[in-house]
Amino acid sequence: MRIALVTTRELPVPDADEDLLLPHLPEATLVAWEDPDVDWAGFDAAFIRSTWNYQDHRDDFLAWARAVELTTALHNRHATLAWNTDKRYLADLAAAGVPTVPTAFVAPGERAGDDALAGHVVVKPSVGAGSNGARLLRDDPAGAAAHVAALHARGLTAMIQPYLHEVDEHGESALIFVGGALSHTARKAAILSRDMSWATGLYADEKIAPAAATPAERDVAARVLEAAARLGHDDLAYARVDLLPTPDGPVLLELELAEPSLFLGLDPEAPARAAAAFRARAARG
């Protein structure tokens, strides 16, 4: 059996997850999605992993995924990638009853409402990863509007969310699911409220520690994945559910189904679990 772990040529070094996964998955090879010389039909399965430049080449990336899916089993599927690589999917999940960070989406040619720009807000593109293009504006409606305009000038839809201050004390929780089961949980320190660094140039560096998911976090994560399944995005090889704390309980910040870091280094057993799940999924085709 041959398995492709899909990365990008723009990543200067292998991702930490890949370094941990490969020893447990000797049938796997790191392959760049944009490498024109790859024979994707030669693989039994391809797992999207560190394709972190997709936001700058989304149309090409999705066209590539559609083509690969014709010749080999792609995880996660093209339809899920198309849905999940634009954060407007959050509106679908909110409509399905998932507690979600309130989000206003403002497409090019549209104007953000004054209420959306007031207070402490996060403005970022709806297509983006690794905090690229994200800014925290504190009581600066003009600055927020200017950042919306800057995103529009790049042809991007802007999204505006209130900054939930509880994250500064409690952090963000990331529940990692592999093969349909909760593998482990990470706690991420607030990132936008401090100076960011960019070691790879593709994503902002994060401070991450192992954590135990609370019953409330498990419940919300289950609701998120159930809602995604009802929308046609089920049978997932992996998922990461990112939650923020609020006085009323956790709310969804992002559901990562395309190329999330799985933070395998936080749990000694996580790499072997992920490898076994990927191997079983590849064997299914």
Rank of each mutant, 00 (worst) to 15 (best):
A186Q: 04
L93P: 07
F177T: 03
R77Q: 15
T80C: 15
R111H: 15
F177Y: 14
A150P: 09
H147N: 10
A158N: 09
V101S: 01
A112E: 05
P162A: 08
N76P: 15
A79D: 15
S183R: 04
D140R: 06
H78S: 14
D168Y: 14
G130F: 01
A94Q: 06
L137Y: 03
V167R: 08
Q161C: 10
A95Y: 06
T100G: 02
L136F: 09
R111P: 10
T157A: 10
S131E: 06
Q161L: 12
P125C: 04
L182C: 08
K124W: 03
E110A: 15
L164H: 04
Y89E: 10
A104S: 13
K87I: 14
T100L: 05
A174M: 01
A116G: 06
A118V: 00
A145S: 14
V121N: 07
V121E: 00
F105A: 05
T80G: 13
H184R: 01
P162L: 10
V122W: 02
V148Y: 03
N84I: 11
R138A: 14
D168A: 14
D139T: 08
A91N: 12
L182V: 06
I160D: 07
A107H: 08
V98G: 02
A149D: 13
D140Y: 00
A174W: 01
H75R: 14
A104I: 04
H120Q: 11
P125L: 06
S173R: 13
A104L: 08
A116H: 06
S131F: 04
P108Y: 09
G130P: 02
K124I: 03
R135L: 12
A91I: 10
I176R: 03
H147L: 07
K87E: 12
T185P: 06
L137F: 08
A79L: 13
G128T: 03
L164A: 03
A186M: 03
A79G: 12
F105G: 03
A146F: 05
D114T: 14
A94T: 08
P125D: 03
G130V: 00
I176V: 12
P99Q: 00
A112C: 14
A129V: 02
Q161T: 01
L90K: 10
R154G: 11
V127C: 05
L164W: 05
L137H: 08
H152R: 13
G179E: 02
L137C: 07
S131H: 05
G133V: 04
A134Q: 10
A129I: 05
H165S: 15
G180M: 02
D115W: 09
V167E: 07
R138Y: 09
G179K: 02
A145G: 09
A82C: 15
G97E: 00
G128N: 00
V122I: 09
T185R: 00
S126P: 02
T185D: 02
R77V: 11
H152S: 09
L164C: 07
H184G: 04
G109L: 09
A94F: 05
Y89F: 15
T157F: 08
E172W: 09
P108S: 12
H170C: 11
A118L: 03
V98D: 00
P125K: 01
G113R: 11
A150G: 13
I176G: 05
L90R: 11
H152T: 08
P102Q: 05
S173L: 11
D168H: 14
L182G: 07
N84Q: 12
